[in-house]
């Protein structure tokens, strides 16, 4: 049985932990709102861009198609672009992304492919370092900026495209966490190079559209931009997802701390009562003995 003083100390420490988790939860809730708004604001652009790329892609097919659209004809070296957060305290958020990346890597390795990693975010790197440390070819550090934005997405895309042009990989896949709701984040694996086109894209393009410059040139400009946007979207969804996961995790932690405090308090009161009773018994039996 722990002494009264010990119990008091523990209650105190759990209480201060609870204060911290509560504060973190509220911070996450506030940030979540912002991140969610940002993710939603970015949606129109990516939707329109996707529509345009799809309608263009349906017209530029066959041999003239740029490698970003049709692939470079090989399927040997796979690059996994894994984007996770820089900070922990977000429940299983980062672990889930890393797990999805590992599973993808495992199935590719089993199929005899070569796998390389490009990681974004500190937690993605630390999560993959032990198993796939040698395969990490690039690490993009997002710690200097508060929230990764379009500028970062552009830089990541530039590095990715440079590597693609240099022939460092054949297929690139993006692993990130899709933001469904503050409670649900879905680790997502999405192929970005070559662009995975929805099959139903070619509808509604009957009108003769004039292009300036011609289709190929526009497409050549659009495809890199599309990749930037996909990465940007992934970063935004990640930020929103991280805050959502963090909020949920901290809410649970706060509740657990509350339960623990309650239990400890009961224990504390019991042992205090026990001490008082023993003392009383001692006094009474002492008085009786006289």
């Amino acid at each position: 049985m722990a002494s009264l003083k010990e119990l008091k100390g523990r209650i105190g420490s759990v209480k201060s932990t609870q204060k911290i988790t509560k504060a973190k939860q509220m911070v996450a809730a506030a940030k979540l709102r912002k991140a969610q708004a940002a993710a939603e604001a970015a949606r129109p652009y990516s939707e329109r861009l996707e529509a345009v790329v799809a309608s263009l892609a349906s017209q530029v097919s066959g041999d003239g198609a740029p490698p970003l659209l049709a692939g470079n004809g090989k399927n040997q070296v796979h690059l996994l672009l894994v984007a996770a957060a820089d900070r922990g305290l977000a429940g299983p958020f980062n672990a889930n992304i890393v797990k999805a990346a590992r599973e993808q890597a495992r199935s590719l390795l089993d199929a005899g492919k070569t796998v390389k990693f490009m990681v974004v975010g500190r937690k993605a790197r630390s999560g993959l370092l032990r198993l796939h440390g040698d395969a990490i070819v690039e690490y993009y550090d997002t710690t200097p900026v508060k929230t990764p934005g379009f500028h970062e997405a552009k830089e990541i895309a530039a590095r990715l495209l440079a590597m693609y042009e240099a022939g460092d990989f054949d297929v690139a896949t993006l692993v990130y966490s899709k933001f469904r709701s503050p409670l649900v984040q879905e680790p997502t694996v999405q192929q970005i190079i070559p662009v995975a086109m929805p099959e139903t894209a070619a509808v509604g393009g009957d009108a003769a559209v004039e292009y300036e410059p011609d289709e190929e040139e526009i497409l050549e400009q659009l495809l890199p931009r599309n990749i930037t946007i996909q990465i940007f979207k992934a970063l935004l969804e990640n930020v929103a997802g991280e805050q959502g996961a963090s909020m949920t995790a901290m809410d649970n932690a706060t509740r657990n701390a509350g339960d623990l405090i309650q239990k400890l308090t009961i224990q504390y009161n019991r042992s205090r009562q026990a001490a008082i009773t023993t003392e009383l018994v001692e006094i009474i039996s002492g008085a009786e003995a006289l």
Partner: peptide, 10 residues
């Protein structure tokens, strides 16, 4: 203007 023919440009 309104009614412009379908067109796309960078």
């Amino acid at each position: 203007l309104e009614g412009h023919a379908p067109f796309m440009s960078t």
